[in-house]
Design a protein around this nucleic acid. Structure first.
Length: 588
RNA sequence: GCGCUUGUAGCUCAAUUGGACAGAGCAUCUGACUACGGAUCAGAAGGUUCGGGGUUCGAAUCCCUGCAAGCGCGCCA
């Protein structure tokens, strides 16, 4: 419809002899329904060029559109400074509803703007040295929903979690575990959280259960096989710390994975840094950069010339002691994400045919917390140096989340060990409430989640408002079936009885979903889906309150049309809730 | 000091990226059909969109400036 109207406006302007700038002409859904179903500013932006007062040009444009014989166009009006408002007949919305029911959950509001392009999305990637914190929950909910939006819009999508299992932090984590196992104090800059003690006990118990004598435990800790996987752990590290670190990483990852999965967040691939290191990818990338003269030596260190690509200064890849910084493996990893061959290996979700117009992955996206935003220019610079187009790497920087409990903001501190885990939030409310809460607001604004408040308001939580609408519809369908009324109305249902205010409002809400999906994707803003799904639920509850469906005094043709409307609404709710990764229940 | 992000109702947040009278939820107050599921619906009240300039038909949105908050600025990750 939008395309038809836009074409008609353009043609009308041409007939009027007005040369307009297409990029400035907008066709919008007005916020107020009395401003019509569609509205264009074409006369406003073209008036100057046409040498006419805006309202006069608007009159002419309106007359042209009235005479163009456009389908469903009821009337036009000139309003305000020179808007042309287009009022559509209900038959337009009836067609939309028929389309919704015909296409269903898997078909409606699917966009083809991705047209098979490939996207790699990395998010969370929290260091595997402990349970998941609030930020991890937010990036998980955000990244997963963004991935769902990409898929619905026709992109082949791979999601990844980068497991940082090498390096100083990992070593410290291992040392902290070992200290706890031995009943010794944790190093000052180590990990002091309670969970470390718990996990240390777990590890000892595990080894004893495996039949290891206490006297042999330290011997076993010296498993040398791990050495090769820990290239970045400095030589001279006590072997037991390496063993404990290896075990601890897997323990932490299991915890992180379970927490995320309980929120319906999953990943197509968990990329261990150690595996990347073992593959020689770091050497390969370094060699390519050196061959291209992107590396310089200074003070016994090797520097990447990122300042030539927009970074504040050059960055060290190899320290003067000969060891790489974290930056080099990160470059290798991001470079690898561009590989189409790797992409297709990781794509578990069916064989999406892609256009094969490009030789590498079209879009590589990182979702990062604000505390890492300084890292973006250097990674972007490195990607350009390796020949990846500037626009194909994208970093989405989200503001941090803080959790509140007992009226106080809970500071996350590694040193004191006072941390609040996402798990705690999920246990206090529910996975759906937690995930919905994360997706309630824009990623650009800081978020404070008050666990007590969320628990106290559990009954009137917005997610239940939406889920209740879905459950109500399911209930109506059950009732209809019990009454012997067709539970899924045939596509040929006469929808013309749907002309009441509540019915039209609900139809309008349903109609905008495809554009909401596209906008939410384009703006990387899943919270727009949250806003929309609440609007749809509100429109439904209003309809449901005022419009009886199965009452005996409702004429059959009205009943059937309304049943069709509820089915369309159910489809819309199911799509929205699926994009948000939240359950759409049949009953509550 | 420099950079990124943010500042909207008492509270938590939206606002079709420059559109028309800035909207929801919570909290407060007042109401509703014997109810196909009341976890619902209707209404009231609540605003100098942080302050000050500017751009134009039109600004919460863009530009300049001041204030405030978070984050970042290492041969740490």
């Amino acid at each position: 419809m939008e395309a038809v109207l836009a074409g008609a406006i353009s043609a009308a302007l041409t007939r009027l002899g007005v040369g307009a700038d297409p990029s400035r002409i907008g066709l919008e859904r007005p916020a107020r329904t009395d401003h019509g179903d569609w509205s264009t500013n074409a006369a406003l932006v073209s008036a100057k060029g046409a040498g006419l007062p805006p309202r006069e040009l608007a009159q002419q444009l309106a007359a042209e559109l009235d005479g163009a014989g456009l389908p469903h166009l009821e009337r036009t009006e000139v309003a305000g400074p020179g808007f042309v408002n287009l009022h559509m007949a209900p038959s337009w919305l009836h067609e939309v509803l028929a389309e919704v029911v015909r296409e269903g959950v898997d078909g409606y509001a699917c966009s083809d703007i991705g047209s098979g392009q490939t996207v790699n999305l990395e998010f969370v990637s929290a260091n595997p040295t402990g349970p998941l914190h609030a930020g991890g929950g937010r990036w998980g909910a955000f990244g997963d929903s963004l991935a769902r939006l990409f898929r619905r819009c026709g992109y082949a999508t791979v999601t990844e979690y980068y497991v940082n299992d090498l390096g100083a932090q990992v070593l410290l984590f291992g040392q902290s575990l070992v200290a706890r196992m031995a009943g010794e104090p944790v190093p000052d800059d180590g990990y002091h959280g309670e969970y470390v003690a718990d996990w240390a006990d777990e590890l000892v118990a595990e080894m004893r259960a495996a039949g290891t004598a206490d006297a042999d435990i330290s011997q076993l800790l010296e498993d040398a096989a791990l050495e090769a996987r820990h290239a970045r752990i400095p030589v001279g590290t006590p072997p037991e710390a390496r063993f404990a670190a290896r075990w601890g990483i897997e323990r932490a990852l299991r915890d992180v994975r379970e927490t995320l999965e309980s929120m319906n967040v999953s990943f197509g691939h968990w990329q261990h840094e150690s595996e990347l290191a073992a593959s020689g990818a770091m050497d390969d990338v370094f060699g390519r950069l050196r061959a291209d003269n992107k590396i310089r030596s200074e003070a016994d260190a090797e520097w990447l010339r990122t300042s030539e690509y927009g970074d504040d200064k050059d960055r060290v890849l190899y320290r003067s002691n000969g060891e790489p910084t974290y930056f080099l493996p990160d470059i290798a990893y991001h470079d690898a994400k561009f590989s189409l061959e790797r992409f297709h290996q990781l794509q578990h979700h069916g064989a999406t045919v892609h256009s094969a117009t490009s030789s590498e992955v079209d879009l590589v996206i990182d979702v990062l917390g604000a505390d890492h935003h300084g890292y973006v220019p250097r990674i972007a610079a490195a990607m350009q140096m390796l020949g990846h187009p500037a626009e194909s790497y994208e970093a989405i920087v989200g503001q941090n989340v803080t959790l509140m409990r007992d009226g106080k903001v809970i500071e996350l501190s590694k040193r004191t060990g006072t941390m609040v885990e996402v798990r705690e939030l999920i246990d206090a409310v529910s996975p759906d409430v937690a995930r919905f809460a994360f997706l309630l607001q824009s990623i650009d604004s800081r978020q404070t989640i008050d666990i007590d408040l969320l628990s106290a308001q559990a009954a009137e939580n917005p997610v239940f408002y939406v889920q209740y609408a879905h459950a109500r519809i399911a209930s109506v369908a059950r009732r209809a079936e019990a009454d012997g009324v067709a539970p899924r109305p045939p596509a040929g249902t006469d929808l013309s009885p749907l002309t009441g205010d509540r019915e039209l409002a609900l139809l309008r809400a349903l109609e905008v979903l495809p554009s909401v999906v596209e906008i939410a994707l384009r703006e990387r803003a899943p919270h727009k889906v949250t806003t929309w799904v609440r609007d749809l639920a509100a429109a439904f509850h209003g309809f449901y309150h005022d419009c009886p469906i199965l009452h005996s005094e409702v004429p059959p043709e009205v009943r059937d049309a309304r049943l069709c409307l509820t089915e369309g609404t159910r489809i819309g709710l199911a799509i929205g809730l699926d994009l948000l990764g939240v359950d759409a229940p049949e009953a509550m």
